[in-house]
């Protein structure tokens, strides 16, 4: 464990909690892409199956349960509890165009052709593009609630911190995982446009509205 990975995990946890509290407190999921949240639940489910097979540490196991629990709770709130506030008309990204090719890619490019490893690879690839429906929805509505921009900021920051973690681990431990690194770079690049808007607008107290 190093400082980049720890702050990365805490940033990820903060994002997940911010979103959960936003929906719970405002009793509304307006502006939130349910499709992205389904993809994240799928990412955690396919990545954390090793909960059943191996124990690494209390931290590792507890964080995985928290991530999975919050992800499904968020999906439940969007599609069941606060379904009336779900903005389906703007959440129209064709996720099948992501899931199917990525499923194929996970079979072709992986470290080991075993079920757990292919599912882990699938979850790594999927996570890198899972935010696209959410970013697409914001581009369609042309704006985002400020709390949603904080959610996206911490979510984007977490993988950027993981990139630093991998530089650290390569330098000090000689460890590196090309699949996770390439997917992590793609994932972080997808947030660059948002990071620019977040820093130039939201941090200056303005609302995040795309070029109107």
């Amino acid at each position: 464990m190093n400082i980049f990975r720890l702050t990365g995990d805490l940033s990820h946890l903060a994002a997940i909690i911010i979103l959960l509290l936003k929906i719970w407190k405002t009793r509304s999921c307006a502006g939130i892409s349910g499709k992205s949240q389904i993809l994240f639940a799928l990412v955690f489910t396919t990545r954390y199956l090793d909960l059943l097979t191996s124990f690494i540490s209390l931290y590792n196991t507890s964080m995985k349960f928290i991530y999975i629990g919050c992800a499904y709770a968020t999906v439940y709130m969007i599609y069941a509890k606060f379904k009336a506030t779900y903005d389906g008309n703007h959440d129209t990204f064709r996720v099948e165009f992501l899931v199917v090719p990525i499923g194929g890619l996970a079979f072709l490019v992986n470290h080991d052709f075993s079920p757990l490893e292919i599912l882990w690879t699938f979850s790594i690839y999927l996570e890198s593009v899972a935010i696209l429906p959410q970013l697409f929805m914001i581009s369609k509505t042309g704006e985002a609630e400020t709390i949603t921009t904080h959610y996206l900021f911490f979510l984007g920051l977490y993988r950027a911190l993981y990139l630093m973690n991998w530089i650290w681990r390569f330098y000090f431990e000689g460890f590196f995982d090309m699949i996770a690194i390439v997917a992590g770079v793609v994932q972080t690049i997808l947030y660059c446009d948002f990071f620019y808007l977040y820093v130039t607008k939201v941090l200056k107290g303005k609302k995040l509205s795309l070029p109107a």
């Binding site: 990975r5 995990d9 990820h12 090793d50 191996s54 690494i56 540490s57 590792n60 964080m63 995985k64 991530y67 080991d112 882990w120 993981y162 973690n165 460890f175 995982d177 996770a180």
Partner: peptide, 10 residues
């Protein structure tokens, strides 16, 4: 074993 350690990231 080594592979277990590698998958110690979330």
């Amino acid at each position: 074993d080594e592979s277990e350690k590698d998958k110690d990231e979330l």
